[in-house]
Design a protein around this nucleic acid. Structure first.
Length: 253
DNA sequence: GGCCAGGCCCCAG
DNA sequence: CTGGGGCATGGC
C-alpha cells in the first residue's frame, strides 16, 4: 500500500521555510542545488535526483503510520484525512536549527523572510535569485552586530552561539532522544521546543514532539492529560498533522 | 499605528 | 521549580 506524498501539506506545514510555490511550480535550494518541479513532474524529478528520495522521505512506512494514527481517535482521523500524505522531511540539521531559532516569538511569514535574508546576504549564490542557506563555516567571522543589522533582533546572540557550537549537531546521531534534547539545549536560545523540532525535522526522530502555542491549544482541547506517549510510536507525525490541521482548518470541534 | 508572533532567558517567590 | 515580564522586528 503506497500512499502518495501530499506536496502542499509537506512543504507548507511549517517544518521548512525554504520552499516557494508559484504558478504550480515548487522551488527551493536543497543541498546547494536549485530544485524545481510541479505536481506532475515530481516523480520524474525524483528519478533524476535520487538523493532527494531521502529528503522527501519517500521510503518510510507512511501507509502504516497514517492507518495507525487514524485509528486512535476521530480528531486525528479527520486531520489525516484532510491532508493525507504529509511527509516529514529529512532536512539538513544546521538549517533546521537556525530556522527554528528564528521561529521564537515570531510568525511564519517573517521567519521565512528572515531565513531568506540570511541566505541572500550570507549564503552562496546558486542561480538567478536563489541562494543556499549559509553553512556554519561561512559564518565564522560574523558578529552579533552584523546579525542585528540584518534584522535578527534579540535572536542574534542565539544564532551566534549556534554558529560557534555547531559541532553539537555532529554528535546527535549517537545519542538517544533524551540525551539529544539535552545536548541541543546547551546552545543558547534552544529550549525544549526548538530542540524537538531539530530532532523531528532533521533527524527523523519519531518520538520528538514539539509543543508550541498551537499544539498546546490542541492538547488542551482534544487530549487533556495526554502526552507524546499517547501517539507512540508516531508522535512526530501526529504532531505535524495536528499542527497543520489546527492552523489551516482552525482545528474545528 | 498598535498588536502580536512554531520561545526562551532571567529573576522572583 | 514555577510563574511571568521582557525581548527586536516587521506584517497585518
Amino acid at each position: 500500500m503506497i500512499t502518495p506524498i501530499h506536496l502542499d501539506s509537506t512543504l507548507f506545514s511549517g517544518q521548512t521555510f525554504a520552499w516557494v510555490k508559484q504558478n504550480g511550480v515548487y522551488e527551493a535550494v536543497v543541498d546547494k542545488n536549485l530544485v524545481s518541479f510541479s505536481e506532475e513532474s515530481f516523480d520524474s524529478m525524483l528519478e533524476k535526483h535520487a538523493a532527494l528520495r531521502r529528503y522527501f522521505d519517500m521510503d518510510w512506512e507512511y501507509g502504516k503510520a497514517e492507518a495507525y494514527l487514524a485509528s486512535l481517535d476521530v480528531h486525528l482521523a479527520r486531520a489525516i484525512k484532510t491532508c493525507k500524505g504529509l511527509h516529514i522531511l529529512n532536512q539538513d540539521p544546521w538549517e533546521v536549527l537556525m530556522a527554528f531559532l528564528l521561529s521564537q516569538n515570531n510568525n511564519i511569514k517573517r521567519i521565512r523572510s528572515m531565513y531568506e535574508r540570511l541566505s541572500k546576504e550570507l549564503g552562496s549564490h546558486v542561480e538567478g535569485s536563489w541562494y543556499a542557506f549559509p553553512r556554519p563555516q561561512e559564518l565564522l567571522g560574523i558578529s552579533e552586530r552584523d546579525l542585528r543589522s540584518l534584522g535578527m533582533g534579540f535572536r542574534a546572540p542565539y544564532l551566534l552561539d549556534a554558529i560557534q557550537n555547531h559541532e553539537v549537531l555532529s554528535g546527535i546521531p549517537g545519542l538517544n532522544d533524551d540525551e539529544a534534547l539535552r545536548a541541543l539545549q546547551t546552545i543558547r536560545g534552544v529550549g525544549a521546543k526548538v530542540a524537538s523540532c531539530v530532532l523531528a525535522f532533521a533527524y527523523h526522530r519519531q518520538q520528538a514532539f514539539p509543543l508550541d502555542t498551537w499544539m498546546l491549544k490542541v492538547m488542551k482541547k482534544h487530549y487533556p492529560g495526554r502526552d507524546a506517549s499517547y501517539f507512540a510510536p508516531y508522535a512526530a507525525l501526529a504532531q505535524q498533522y495536528l499542527f497543520h490541521y489546527e492552523r489551516t482548518q482552525g482545528g474545528l470541534p
